[in-house]
Design a protein around this nucleic acid. Structure first.
Lengths: 212, 212
DNA sequence: GACGCCATCGGGTAAAACCACGATTCGAGG
DNA sequence: CCTCGAATCGTGGTTTTACCCGATGGCGTC
């Protein structure tokens, strides 16, 4: 079970993220903060595994909050979930100690994957973040999880696969050839870094493409 | 999402079942009753999909409670979860309208499977219930889910399979031949009535053999 | 001791899946 | 216009599963 602190000044973001994580099981939102100071205080008192932080926060901004959290709780990882993608800002927050950066516009499985990676102390960055910005930070980290988003078609295929369909029936259902199904399937498996149907199914469940 | 009413006079049974179901996601314990009268009242007010009922209950026993619940809420299925297995009692409660009967000593996946079956209006009986007792009740129902418990070995094999291992690596890990792995795997798949690795994984997750 | 269940292993075949290549088409964007 | 990603499909091969059969030894029960 990964305990998560959600820090965002917008109620919809907090509740949306909470809903997303709670349906995933193996995540627990231990607290919500609506400004930077609260984020720091709650991080210290609740000692979560991961803090999901917006950058633009009242009282103390996300960059300074990251610095303080990482200083007080080195074991706690900070993941930035925001809409802004200015290179300078990203650099600042990474220098402050954040080890994950995901844009709010990313598909939901990215967010889930990111938090999971961070919980295992592996850095995670949206593919949309320029490599030049994160170069220094991937190197000093122990691992990278540069999984790209799945395309709509890939998502559809692995949803059916994870639902128990064979390649052949997926081909029939989507009216494409088995070869194409195989192509989508293996592309998806490569992207999300799984190597068996079983792992693919568990990925699909974690990302809520299907229910258990 | 299947809504479940838990009725048992022992707090540990109620909480244990609640914990079991809540970790499973797609079950929701909508209420708890600690005697037969409460079970009937809460069934009427909450209108759950399935009522899990102990037979020995204060005020009104499980048999009478079953009768009243089935009379007031024909759509709600009653599953008996108890320790006693006297044939006459089982017959009584089935005549009263229960469509599932599982012993508390059964492994947990049996309980989960039973509630799932009932939610789909399919009857379910522990394998330990003599066939002679349930004969009449399986026939008039629409389907039967006579899946036997998995053996320890089968459980171990499908846990590894669901964890992403191939038959070959399972064979290596358990130091047995691939043929034996295949045997356990297909025996297990036949028992739990799944026909693909993907379905097997989902079964394993639902039964908490592995986590997503 | 006979009987059933479990775990173990094998042989064989057909189907399915995996993999590594290449190739086309089509649309969005620089 | 040219590039690039996505989607599509192919060839040809290896590996893995699925499913059929049978067989053996252990272990408990009646």
């Amino acid at each position: 079970m990964v305990s998560v602190l959600v820090a965002d000044d917008r109620i919809v973001s907090r509740r949306g993220l909470r809903a997303l994580l709670e349906t995933c099981q193996n995540f627990e939102v231990c607290a919500e903060a609506c400004n930077g100071r609260e984020a720091v205080e709650l991080s210290i008192s609740h000692n979560p595994d991961v803090v999901v932080l917006e950058i633009e926060l009242p009282i103390i901004d996300g960059i300074e909050a990251t610095r303080r959290i990482r200083h007080q709780r080195p074991q706690t990882e900070v993941m930035i979930l925001t809409s802004q993608n200015r290179d300078a800002t990203i650099r600042d927050v990474l220098h402050a100690g954040a080890r994950g950066y995901v844009l709010k516009s990313e598909p939901e499985e990215q967010i889930v994957l990111a938090i999971e990676s961070l919980a295992h102390h592996r850095s995670y960055f949206s593919r949309s973040i320029p490599a030049s910005v994160i170069n220094g930070f991937r190197a000093n980290g122990d691992a990278v999880d540069q999984s790209r988003s799945l395309t709509a078609r890939e998502r559809e295929v692995i949803r059916l696969i994870a639902d128990g369909k064979s390649n052949k029936s997926v081909a029939y259902l989507l009216d494409i050839s088995i070869k194409t199904v195989e192509a989508h399937r293996s592309a998806a498996m490569r992207k999300v870094n799984v190597h068996s149907t079983a792992e693919l199914v568990r990925y699909a469940i974690r990302c809520r493409l299907i229910s258990p």
